[in-house]
Amino acid sequence: MLELRLLQGGLLKKVLEAMKDLVNDANFDCSPTGFSLQAMDSSHVALVSLLLRSEGFEHYRCDRNVSMGMNLNNMAKMLRCAGNDDIVTLKADDGSDCITFMFENPSQDKIADFEMKLMDIDSEHLGIPDAEYQSIVRMPAAEFARICRDLSTIGDTVLISVSKEGVQFSTRGDMGTANIVCRRTTTVDKPEEDVIIEMEEPVSLTFALRYLNSFTKATPLATQVTISMSSDLPMVIEYRIEGMGYIRYYLAPKIDE
């Protein structure tokens, strides 16, 4: 028996919007720790990792570890029928081939049940080792989204270079080139607007903007985004979900041949 009750149903809606363009079908894993997912995009270039910890739910019952295959587009469609302030409950009986999403409005005078078929999905689970990254940038999530969107109108890839002074985003295309530098900030009064750089070594890596733009669908989940890079590893873009966990995107770099 599985029963997960989330007071902020809008959060689950945002989580689905942040994943559905990248991944079609995925297994949600439910355990006493929380509700999680790990899935790759169809070309195996990017990976998304989601964790919603059990403590973040108002009620969390998961009698045994269970993996539920879902089509993320269909799940997003069902969740779009919930109001942003609705309480959302996920329910599944042991061995059942469907999951129920229950939506309750804040005044609790409207209750809706949506039942969705589960699917069998063969998915590869990758082991992601803990790593020390050479450069970590924390910056406003909206600013990062704006930069990725702007640069993708000029070119297909972005070179991200981190130095002690700041982070530079560069692209080139048929019409010309573009460079955006975000300097490290030193203010302390508005931490949500800060650009913070933790650097062991300067890093310069090239990534496909198409993927970065798809990751920035998670922007409504967090005010800040953390970008971790090492020259020999995929980059990690993390949006922390307050009080619940995180959504992390891993993206393999491009290399000069």
């Binding site: 195996h44 890839t157 770099p253 290399i255 041949e257």
Partner: peptide, 14 residues
């Protein structure tokens, strides 16, 4: 030419 690497070339299957 920038060659796209795959994520599976970095992480091992569990």
């Amino acid at each position: 030419v920038n060659q796209q690497r795959q994520i599976t070339s970095f992480f091992t299957k569990k």
